[in-house]
Amino acid sequence: MSLLELEGVGKKFGGLTALSDFNLSLAPGELVGLIGPNGAGKTTVFNLITGVYKPTEGRIVFNGKDITGLRPDLITRCGIARTFQNIRLFGSLSVLENVLVANHLRLRSNPLEAVIRWGRYGAEGREMVAYSQSLLEAVGLAHLAQEQASSLPYGQQRRLEIVRALATKPKLLLLDEPAAGMNPAEARELMDFIRQIRKDFDLTILLIEHHMRVVMGICERILVLDYGLTIAEGSPAEIQKNQKVVTAYLGVETGA
């Protein structure tokens, strides 16, 4: 059974078709890449899966549940977490607080219990801090726990965003250009990191990336989008040889 199933999903903004008849099936544990030139509709796919946009056609099924048109916070509760292309951390909050915020969806205490620190809130709060702290330790950000998130260097902000997504305890992680702006060494480190978290957290990962070395290096399957259409799908080796993909990225030689 597949974990995520997109059936004929499309999205129109007025007259502009951002995505049409998009089909995707993710098996549990898969690491799939989504590539394509700028404006091809990759981030639109993410926004549709996470509920930021509502699809104009088609159906999205996650874990056997139809999540088409559901509110973003409810979709996150179902077990889908994401990062953003342009980092969206809670800038004035500390690194630890950023991760703590992602624990809030599991909080069962009501506001009154939280104010008077009564009943289950104490235990829930401690568990929350401990889990966040262990996550930060595991990815090597623990020493920065009290720093303001916006003061971190770029690479660590990317990493923090991934950790924050992990703290929602997702089954499916959507990474939107995690290697953007990274040098080859950093990108290699990131690839190891992504492989590591997939194994340790039992994740299925869908990844948008322009960094071809990263995509070809870690993805088992790749989808290529161009102008809202899926133009190719297959293993990294197949994609590299696909004539349509080469054309989409490099254009056609028209001859002299």
């Binding site: 996150t76 800038g91 909050l93 915020v101 709060g125």
Partner: peptide, 23 residues
């Protein structure tokens, strides 16, 4: 409290807060 952090998260970035499961 955790609610206070959720409020501040909404102040900082509504889209990210929602993506973290905050209604």
């Amino acid at each position: 409290s955790s609610y206070g952090r959720a409020f501040k998260a909404i102040r900082e970035d509504e889209i990210a807060a929602e993506a973290m499961g905050i209604g």
